[in-house]
Design a protein around this nucleic acid. Structure first.
Length: 773
DNA sequence: ATGGAGACCTTTTTT
DNA sequence: AGGTCTCCAT
């Protein structure tokens, strides 16, 4: 296909975005406006114009996006140049560069990437070694602080000097965060390891401190493209800015309305301020939505309108009006799941919709449980994306720890993980002494293990032997690296490490062994089929003969994310995932569940306008995933922390215009499809949904929705008990009548007087505070 | 060293 | 509620 053909398939703004190859360009791509199309066509167009593929740096949000884009470009231009474009996530592209330049920043080529679990584990060890109280020095908090610092390009030394940061930590009762940070970095460095944030941080260091490197990569990457620019953080922003500084051929694509990674340091100002950085920048807006019905587009627009900071744009569509959006309310989370399942059943049955075109979205991973149970019960095939990833499983991490150790002996977390697994008589005490010894001599743990006699580890002779045996075993693996591919190494390690024997010894570990074999399959696939290009360090040209070595496998696995999971098109399964995971995807039928205050928007974000706006953008992303039919659900009660909690409908529901909603649709309740009864849980939605502002004042002003109490079980309900009812407010049980199904309670309500309630239906809540005023 | 009972904590979202 | 971690008994 030639350049003109490529252009003929685009609308005016899309074509402009494709053709503006030189100079700074910002493309604001509304949801469903054909952003991916523009990106792929743009790169294809550039290649057709004769631009050398390895001079193009294209940064995507996930590896999967990069892979798909490469394929599509390849189809467009019909040759192999697409593969030579340097395309991938920030982390994968720059990790590769850091590896080749490792010595310049004090690392070696065999460096390991620590995942979040590794980082946390190291932090736990440090906190323990410093004799700090882990209840005060909460690992998550510390890691967030360190991560935020690195994302803002603060070193541990900068942090130690930063009075604001130290003041904050002091106020949080954790004055030693800075000290932990310093130790953490030192240990990372000793382990020849980087965490995710380090990759971006050290890339900045490389460009900052080594003018030759800056020159090299500015020169290499003559054209820079960034997808999902609204989700870049400061460290990423600076890398791009530096690389593009000499030529200004930078094209960023994004949508400020879809910025949903602020919690991880993404700075929406990067996109809002692009014009300031490049005054000569061209701004192109893609506003026509090709994805969704008018109802969906209108609802999304109406919701996002409530946010303040925005790049003005009007997303519109020529698509048909479509089905109104249904809002379903149900009694409990199980009722909600049943309502969703009912609807899916109906749609599949009556309209023969493929399960594959249906997605259920939620704010938090934990919400998948009730949905999963109900789907299983109804025999609806499904697949959950996200949650505990395959590579986070214990047995997988164990195998990978051996692999990582074989490549990088200094990988301390891996070493600690498997030094006594399978059991070889090196207990915690020994490990502690070894680590203490290493710290004392300013040596690495591996050095001590390799030579316990020299370092005079305070353990007995046989234990020293065991340490050396372990080191020798790892060294025997290392010796094979040069001649074996990833799969051969993996197979060897699984057996020679003793992991296979340990797992087979216990029949209850059958699943784990299966997982290990799945890992071996993945290694085999990698060894046989991987097409990871290898680039020439100096020119950036692609070197054809890729060798699928173990370290390359580990690298590819370290930066895998759930979003990268192989797409199982034609799997005919309903997809379940968080809204974050759904970013960039689209489905004919979408269910957004759990639209409740304190859940969506999340309780953590309700306090601040900024975070609330991010939640709203998240809702916007969720709505705009739907192509044809959108259903939104919420429940009145939900189990949280083991107790039943009352849930108010989300404020976001009020923001959907009634004109886009379906009228009077009855939600399922209780047993779902075949249950007509719903008692106190009887609810409607659509136009009958009363905006919160019109609800009668709550009986108690200090009423906090998340902490009402729990639902009473019938035997607990006795005369004299003070209870709370969702509709009627507070009251006291005055009498119990009848038996079994017919058991009734006479309740004297504060505001409404006496009522008789059938216990079978009434959800009486025992207030947490005992019902005192 | 191993396993079981109980305490305890959790819930944002993820590269 | 359920999973993880800790501590104690074996």
């Amino acid at each position: 296909m030639n350049g003109n053909n490529i252009l003929s398939q685009l609308n005016d703004s899309q074509r402009a975005a494709v053709q503006e190859v030189a100079g700074p360009v910002m493309v604001i791509a509304g949801a469903g406006s054909g952003k991916t199309r523009v990106l792929t066509y743009r790169i294809a167009y550039m290649l057709e114009q004769g631009i050398v593929p390895w001079r193009i740096l294209a940064l995507t949000f996930t590896n999967k996006a990069a892979r798909e884009m490469t394929e599509r470009i390849q189809k467009l231009i019909g040759d192999g140049r697409a593969k030579a474009v340097q395309m991938g996530t920030f982390h994968s592209v720059f990790l590769r560069i850091l590896r080749t330049e490792a010595e310049k920043i004090g690392f070696s080529r065999s460096l390991t990437v620590y995942d979040t679990d590794d980082s946390k584990s190291l932090l736990r060890n440090i906190i323990k070694e410093m004799n700090l109280d882990p209840k005060i020095y909460v690992v998550n908090f510390i890691l967030n602080r360190i991560s935020a610092a690195k994302s803002n390009l603060l070193s541990d030394e900068d942090y130690a000097r930063n009075t604001e940061a130290k003041q904050y930590d002091k106020e949080c009762g954790k004055p030693l965060v800075s000290e932990i940070f310093t130790r953490y970095n030192k240990r990372m460095h000793n382990a020849n390891a980087m965490d995710f944030d380090d990759i971006l941080y050290y890339m900045n260091v490389l460009l900052r401190d080594h003018p030759d490197m800056l020159f090299k990569y500015q020169n290499r990457f003559q054209y820079v493209l960034v997808d999902e620019y609204q989700d870049t953080n400061f460290a990423q922003y600076m890398i791009i800015k530096k690389i593009a500084a000499s030529h200004h051929n930078i094209c960023v694509v994004g949508d400020d309305a879809q910025s949903i990674y602020g919690f991880r340091g993404a700075d929406i100002n990067n996109i809002l301020n692009f014009k300031r950085d490049y005054p000569e920048a061209k701004l192109i807006k893609l506003e026509q939505n090709y994805r969704s019905t008018q109802n969906i587009v209108n609802a999304a627009n109406a919701v996002i309108k409530n946010n303040n900071k925005q790049i003005p744009k009007k997303v519109w569509t020529e698509n048909e009006e479509g089905t109104p959006i249904s809002v379903l309310q149900s009694g409990t989370e199980n009722d909600e799941a049943a309502a969703v399942c009912d609807s899916i059943f109906e749609v599949e049955h009556n309209y023969h919709v493929d399960y594959n075109d249906i997605a259920i979205l939620y704010r938090t991973n934990m919400q998948s449980r009730a949905l999963e149970e109900m789907l299983m019960k109804r025999h609806i095939p499904y697949r959950i994306y996200g949650g505990v990833s395959f590579y986070a499983r214990k047995e997988i991490k164990d195998v990978l720890a051996y692999c990582r150790l074989a490549v990088n002996h200094y990988d301390e977390e891996s070493l600690r993980r498997v030094i006594n697994y399978p059991l070889r008589g090196i207990g915690d005490t020994t490990v502690e002494r070894v680590v203490a010894c290493a710290n004392e001599h300013n040596a690495r743990v591996w050095d001590v293990i390799e030579n316990p006699v020299f370092f005079e580890v305070p353990v007995n002779g046989p234990t020293k032997e065991k340490l050396m045996d372990f080191a020798n075993k790892i060294k025997s693996f290392t010796a094979l690296l040069a001649t074996k591919d990833a799969y051969e190494m993996g197979k060897h390690i699984v057996f020679a490490s003793g992991i296979a024997a340990a797992l087979k010894a216990d029949p209850s570990d059958k699943d784990r062994m299966d997982n290990v074999e799945e890992l071996l399959d993945a290694m085999k696939d990698f060894s046989e089929n991987a097409e990871e290009p290898t680039f020439n360090d100096d020119t950036g040209e692609v070197i054809e003969n890729f060798t699928p070595t173990l370290d390359r496998f580990l690298e590819s696995v370290a930066l895998l994310t759930d979003a990268d999971e192989k797409d199982s098109e034609e799997e005919h399964k309903v997809k379940l995932m968080t809204i974050h995971a759904a970013k960039g995807l689209e489905f004919d039928y979408v269910y957004i569940t759990g639209l409740e205050e304190n859940l969506f928007p999340s309780a953590m974000s309700i306090g601040s306008r900024r975070e609330l706006e991010e939640e709203r953008r998240l809702f916007y992303v969720a709505i705009t995933r739907a192509k044809k039919v959108l259903t939104i659900t919420h429940a009145q009660t939900r189990y949280r922390f083991g107790s039943m909690q009352f849930c108010e409908p989300s404020r976001f529901l009020d923001e959907i215009p009634l004109s886009c909603q379906k009228t009077l649709r009855k939600a399922s309740s209780g047993k779902g499809l075949f249950s007509g009864k719903s008692g106190a849980g009887e609810v409607y939605s659509g136009k009958t949904f009363v905006p919160k502002s019109k609800l009668p004042a709550k009986p108690k002003p200090d009423f906090s929705a998340s902490s009402v109490g729990r639902i009473a079980t019938p035997p607990e309900i006795v005369p004299g008990l003070r209870i709370y009812h969702l509709k009627f407010g507070y009251g006291t049980v005055s009498k119990i009548d009848g038996t079994g199904e017919d058991r009734k309670a006479v309740v004297n309500f504060e505001t409404l007087g006496e009522k008789v309630l059938l216990l079978k239906f009434a959800k009486l809540i025992i207030p947490k505070d005992g019902g005192k005023k």
